[in-house]
Design a protein around this nucleic acid. Structure first.
Length: 283
DNA sequence: AATGGCCCCAACCGCGGAACC
DNA sequence: CGGTTCCGCGGTTGGGGCCAT
């Protein structure tokens, strides 16, 4: 006999998650920590399969997720990493720990791939840098509100829920939750996951990060992360990039890591980029 | 105001490898 | 060791929102 079945197929709810379900899931994970997804639907009473719970958590509810526009720096990183790694979204996401693989995949499919194809067909001689600048400009003009954190994210969900429907008992419960201080849910969360962007024990193999601001985010590859876990801040909107700790990181850096370090501190020149691409092809 | 088309993204599906018994 | 299930990943899609007409 192997493991017992994940979940009953019958009676499983599909489709968008409601704020109530989100709260139930978050509350449960706060208490028990992520993992053992099979037991989540059973213990919470959620009519969702374990897979759906895991997906909802990792792609949406997990602390430290940055939502909204991708910065030009993130865009560059994705383009580079995609060129180097292919469609290994999970691997790419490990270099952008505030973003989920799903987010990156979506962004690639809806924005970057389109832009790259377009610029390729229009004029192959025009540098990629130009295309990126155009894209970055569009980004700043056509910006959407950025979810600063999952806290705000859930707050929004809850607010929407309150407005949309007369107060149910669940809604009252949720509102109570929200009114207890500044979203106690996430305060508690902060206690349980003191470093939001570091997933720590619940996903040991996830990358641990040390962040700069949007344009200068700094990160450490998973394999080096244990030494460099830092919990000094939430999702940052300021800071200026590489700090001394990282410069002093002793383990040998991979090619990509080296490039990322260079990239974050100096910006990428197109010649360097093409050179790097050549190098990576040779590897 | 109504309608249709397009865009975007959250969520689902299916697969492969890992884990468990 | 083989069978069964879990977990994570990449690809795909459904539907809501936005915009032009």
């Amino acid at each position: 006999m192997g493991r017992p079945p994940c979940c009953e197929k019958i009676g499983i709810k599909k489709g968008p998650w409601t704020p109530e379900e989100d709260i139930i899931l978050v509350s449960y994970i706060q208490e028990h920590g992520p993992g053992n997804w099979r037991s989540v639907p059973t213990n919470t009473g959620l009519l969702r399969c374990s897979k759906s719970c895991r997906l909802r958590w990792t792609n949406y509810l997990r602390p430290g997720i940055k939502r909204g526009n991708f910065t030009p720096h993130e865009e560059r990183m994705i383009i580079h990493l995609q060129a180097l790694l292919g469609n290994k979204w999970a691997s790419i996401a490990s270099y952008l720990p505030q973003r989920t693989d799903n987010d990156i995949k979506n962004y690639w499919n809806t924005h970057l791939k389109k832009n790259l194809n377009k610029s390729e067909s229009e004029e192959r001689s025009v540098s990629e840098n130009m295309a990126l600048q155009t894209s970055a400009t569009r980004n700043t003009i056509n910006h959407r509100s950025t979810y600063a954190s999952s806290t705000e994210n859930i707050s929004r969900l809850l607010e929407g829920s309150m407005r949309a429907s007369p107060k149910s008992s669940t809604a009252n419960f949720l509102e109570e939750k929200m009114q207890k201080g500044t979203t106690n849910l996430m305060d508690d969360h902060e206690n349980q996951f003191p470093c939001e962007h570091v997933q720590g024990s619940w996903e040991e193999d996830q990358s641990k990060t040390i962040n700069g601001d949007d344009d200068h985010g700094f990160l450490v590859h998973p394999k080096e992360s244990e030494k460099n876990v830092s919990c000094d801040h939430d999702v940052q909107e300021d800071g200026d990039g590489v700090d001394d700790d990282h410069k002093n990181a002793t383990p040998p850096l991979t090619f990509i890591e080296k490039w990322l370090l260079e990239e974050t501190s100096t910006g990428v020149q197109m010649e360097e980029m093409s050179h790097l691409m050549e190098l990576s092809n040779m590897l």
